[in-house]
Design a protein around this nucleic acid. Sequence first.
DNA 1: TAACTATTCAATAATTCTATTGAATAGTTA
DNA 2: TAACTATTCAATAGAATTATTGAATAGTTA
Lengths: 224, 224
Amino acid sequence: MNKREFKDKVYTELAKVAKAMANPVRLEIIDLLAQGPFSVEQIAHYTGQSVANASQHLQTLKNAKLVQVTRNGNFINYSLAGENVFNAWIGLRELGFAYNAEVEKVIHDFRNGHNSDMNAVDAETLAEMIENDEVVLLDVRPEDEYNRGHIHKAISTPIDKLETYLKKLSKRKMLVAYCRGPFCVYADEAVAMLKDKGYNAVRLNEGFPEWALLNGYPVDSKFS
Amino acid sequence: MNKREFKDKVYTELAKVAKAMANPVRLEIIDLLAQGPFSVEQIAHYTGQSVANASQHLQTLKNAKLVQVTRNGNFINYSLAGENVFNAWIGLRELGFAYNAEVEKVIHDFRNGHNSDMNAVDAETLAEMIENDEVVLLDVRPEDEYNRGHIHKAISTPIDKLETYLKKLSKRKMLVAYCRGPFCVYADEAVAMLKDKGYNAVRLNEGFPEWALLNGYPVDSKFS
DNA sequence: TAACTATTCAATAATTCTATTGAATAGTTA
DNA sequence: TAACTATTCAATAGAATTATTGAATAGTTA
């Protein structure tokens, strides 16, 4: 094997990994699987795809070793192959944020539409607020995602049942809602609704996996 | 804009960035540009592409905002758009290393062919060796890359002129060669040649940009 | 074993990507 | 201004990718 053949092989192999990430549906799947394992049907549902199409994309991700498979009864569950997959996804996401004005613009426009653009708090600030007991932290993801792991001291208030929790929340305390990540809109919806009802609410600008894996802040988890 | 439209737009924009990286030639270009700016002709030469083809790939990278352009006389120089591009590339590379056995195998096989598989040292170890003055550090990249920036205390011994430097090197000291990165083979060639002539030589398992940007170890640079 | 269920496969047409070739362009030097 | 040079553009054919549809499969439950 000469120099050129060697380089061709190495970069071709790495390009295969990049190709597996080079599709919007698959990126959304990766972002979703950062929460934990999901069945094909769940993945199809959350990403708005047909089951066959979701399955096809999952095969692509599996072949590139980005996801792994476990069986649970009738269901096949997919999850990220490891922390490096999340890291690569974050690297890509940060790159998109930094140099592609289009990405920021879309987010900005969307949040403006929800009157929540200025209502985001970063992880560091939130950590301080928790420390000082200044905040009630709301995990607005579906309950089973909360059960797998959540930010320490957060309470589960899934977005579609949030209204039933309202009476337990104080209008004097600051409420911080978080969900799956910066592109997850449950938190935006929660903030919009809470403010509408007269509560003090902001969202965390990222989500659970960033809190846990990037920042290493405390979590409550089944596994710890 | 509803939820689904918002997500589609965000993930589609990020997929564009991933698509720009999803090609072996473009990954090799990114890896090369991590050394600093190069002209189209140089890029074509180092990657073994036609000028027209290299230019086309550079347009793709430019449209995705991964590279930027400066003009210098008759030449147009391309360089990475920023540190986030390097970070994303490293994220991808580490992912390939970790889960894609094929990548490791190719590297292993190639280095075995050069009898140098076991002759690599990592950055931390090298930093200690430098500290203790146990080592002579050889930058075997082309001289102009050395001039742009190199590891502190390294001397320039470009691979194609390495033989002329031999008489100045001691057989009693350990020699460590480095080049552009883990896939750069100049360092392997240097180690093979040096050992053949009876010197003690190993390569650094990564290259200059990793040393400088990832590990933050000391460098000598035009700009610092 | 039979029925059932979640998932995968296969075929297809539309779209996108890629390397090659040779011509066109923009900027520099004389 | 004219000649020159580095780079880009345009056209093309072959290859790869994608969503859709409906059928096939493997594993589970009764």
